[in-house]
Every structure is written in structure tokens, then in C-alpha cells.
Design a protein around this nucleic acid. Structure first.
Length: 193
DNA sequence: CCAACGATTCGCT
DNA sequence: GCGAATCGTTGGC
């Protein structure tokens, strides 16, 4: 039919949310592609921005499920998150660029068709022109659309999260094998594919 | 108030 | 593979 897929279920455990996001079509102001890499950040999670409770920066993490949480990383990069249950969020680490590739390349300062557009949270934020103004907005709005895949994609990868020092042993990074990942997954983490 | 620290990326060795 | 860039948030004094 004309349906682009089932509605997305935001109100679920953040680990399941991070996995179910894989294969979804993400568009920000009409530009984007398919989510291929995510990380889960929980409420009682030393690596999470919400670990020490509500602050001004992480306030949107405690907002309604389906919200947009944007933060500035290393003073340079704006990273996009999907808010789940209170204090939980999914960092979108990589998408496969499909819609508006020329726009994304221009935003990244790269020639069309050359270089990584949206593999890595900082690159993705730049390619999708994410700003702190987007913090607190909602997925499902005109600006942020998210469509779940008809089927769970094959080739699920599971591994430890990237770039953190606390709770690094938690296998809360998820990806789709063979896609444009920000970094390779450790060996032996492929399942079902 | 001040110092330390990132959920990163890019360029150079 | 390693280190600088860069600045808001955080925690301690």
C-alpha cells in the first residue's frame, strides 16, 4: 500500500529502542537516510548525561518519549539523540545517506559523492544541519520524521559503546553489518546474519 | 570563580 | 596510531 511502515514505538526500554531504530528511515527537514548505527544510554548509566539527574543541558532527556536531544560534543560537534523513557536516549551514530546527498555533501564541505557524509555522530549532525535550536523538538514533527522498517534488518551487530570511559563494558552499541558504520565492530559480534 | 573533562573529528607522523 | 582543536557543562574550592 502507500504506507511507509508501522508507526514508531518510542515508549520502550532504551536498549530495545536503540535496536529497533536500526533500518528506520530518518529525515531531518527532508534530508537523511536509513539508520545503521545507534547507542543506548540509560537512566542509571554512568556514561549517560542523565546519570547525575536533571540539569539544564539534559532536560530534554527527561521530556516525553520521542523527543529530540541535541548536545555539543567536544565544543565542536552537535550530536542527535532520540529520547526514550525518562532519562533515557539513543545516540544516532550513523545513517546511510539516501535523501539529499548533495545537500549533505555541501554541508560537510565535501565534493558530491566523496568522503563520509553521515558515519559518526558529529558528521551526521553536520550533514543534517543539526543545531542546539533542535534540542527539545519532537520526532514525528514536520522537521524530524522517523519511519520504522517493515522488517527488522538482517545482520545485527552488537558491541561496546564508543568513546566513553564509564560503563564501557555494556554492549549497548548496535549496527547493521556491511553498512556505513562510524567504526568497525569487534569480531564475533555479528548475529543473525 | 576556576580547572577538568568530554557519547568527536581531522590532520600529520 | 596519536594529538590538537574547541567550548559548554560540571564539580570542587
Amino acid at each position: 500500500m502507500t504506507s511507509a511502515g508501522p508507526p514508531f514505538q518510542f515508549d520502550q526500554d532504551v536498549v530495545g529502542l536503540a535496536q529497533s531504530l536500526l533500518g528506520a528511515r530518518l529525515l531531518v527537514r527532508g534530508v537523511g537516510g536509513t539508520v545503521v548505527e545507534t547507542e543506548a544510554y540509560g537512566r542509571d548509566d554512568p556514561a549517560s548525561h542523565s546519570f547525575r539527574g536533571l540539569t539544564q543541558r539534559n532536560a530534554s532527556m527527561f521530556g516525553p518519549p520521542g523527543g529530540v536531544y541535541v548536545y555539543l560534543s567536544y565544543g565542536c560537534h552537535l550530536c542527535l539523540n532520540l529520547v526514550g523513557r525518562a532519562g533515557e536516549a539513543v545516540l544516532i551514530r550513523a545513517i546511510r545517506p539516501e535523501v539529499g546527498c548533495e545537500i549533505m555533501a555541501e554541508r560537510r564541505g565535501l565534493p558530491t559523492g566523496a568522503g563520509p557524509l553521515t558515519s559518526g555522530p558529529g558528521r551526521l549532525g553536520q550533514a543534517l544541519a543539526i543545531t542546539l535550536e533542535d534540542n527539545g523538538k519532537a520526532f514525528g514533527s514536520n522537521e524530524f520524521t522517523l519511519t520504522a522498517p517493515d522488517r527488522r534488518p538482517a545482520g545485527l551487530l552488537i558491541g561496546p559503546r564508543i568513546g566513553i570511559t564509564k560503563a564501557a563494558e555494556r554492549p549497548w552499541r548496535f549496527g547493521i553489518a556491511g553498512a556505513g558504520l562510524s567504526r568497525p565492530f569487534p569480531p564475533q559480534s555479528a548475529t543473525g546474519g
